[in-house]
């Protein structure tokens, strides 16, 4: 029991960093199909060395406009119906980093202002005086500076910022792949309801006109 209380306490101390959302960078995420596909390539090729996106399946990538051959190239021998799992087994990652790297499927929805959070985190790495990499948004992060942001010069950073933007776009899509479908259906629903409500208003006025004075 004591041990359990102690582990609670330690995790409590570690927790605030997980939820830190201060100093998010102001950025517009490019949601174009090209950016999404390029982001998908980076995520499957780089991030998924350690992270999983287990709520996505390789077949879902076809919706981004990839050919089956492209997806086969990214899936490293996995089948289309397989979920996107990390290439490193979770227990190996846990030994290396001390915890299993979080699944990324819902990250863009699991943080306040999620897409900006992801972008700011990826471009928030720096080298402290002792030469260790750290992160402005998430001090003490165990994830390595995978894009190499902290060591890059200004011209390299422009390219890295674009790459971080594409990764963010893809992760935002991964968290809510039905968003486009939802919105495009939403326009029809709202248009229909506005028309219907307009007609209902006319009906109401006509019915109430029978009362004579038409009060209310």
């Amino acid at each position: 029991m004591k041990l359990r209380a102690l582990s609670y306490l330690m995790l409590l101390l570690a927790a605030p960093a997980t939820w830190a959302d201060n100093a998010l960078k102001d950025v517009v995420i490019d949601q174009s199909p090209t950016a999404l596909r390029r982001g998908a390539a980076t995520v499957t090729g780089v991030c998924m060395a350690c992270h999983s996106l287990k709520y996505l399946h390789y077949r879902d990538l076809l919706k981004l406009g990839f050919n089956p051959e492209d997806v086969a190239g990214m899936s490293m021998g996995n089948k289309l119906e397989d979920p996107l799992l990390a290439m490193t087994p979770p227990d190996v990652s846990e030994q290396t980093y001390g915890r299993v790297p979080p699944d990324l499927s819902l990250l863009a929805k699991a943080r306040e202002d999620g897409p900006r959070y992801i972008y700011s985190l990826l471009t928030g790495f720096y080298q402290d005086k002792s030469g260790e990499t750290n992160n402005h948004l998430y001090p003490g992060i165990r994830m390595p500076d995978i894009l190499g942001w902290s060591g890059a010069d200004a011209s390299q950073r422009a390219a890295l910022a674009t790459q971080a933007n594409e990764v963010t776009a893809f992760l935002a899509w991964a968290a809510d792949p039905r968003a486009d479908e939802r919105r495009s259906l939403g326009y029809y629903v709202i248009a229909y309801l506005v028309l219907l409500t307009g007609l209902l208003y006319v009906l109401k006025r006509r019915v109430w006109a029978r009362l004579g004075q038409g009060s209310n």
């Binding site: 939802r182 919105r183 259906l185 939403g186 629903v189 709202i190 309801l193 506005v194 219907l196 409500t197 209902l200 208003y201 009906l203 109401k204 019915v207 109430w208 009362l211």
Partner: peptide, 26 residues
Amino acid sequence: PYFTAKDFFGLGVFLIIFCGFVFFAP
């Protein structure tokens, strides 16, 4: 028909706001 007409108009207005959240800010 007086309050059926009035209530259904109110329902229409409500549904516009409600579906605004469902489809655009769920």
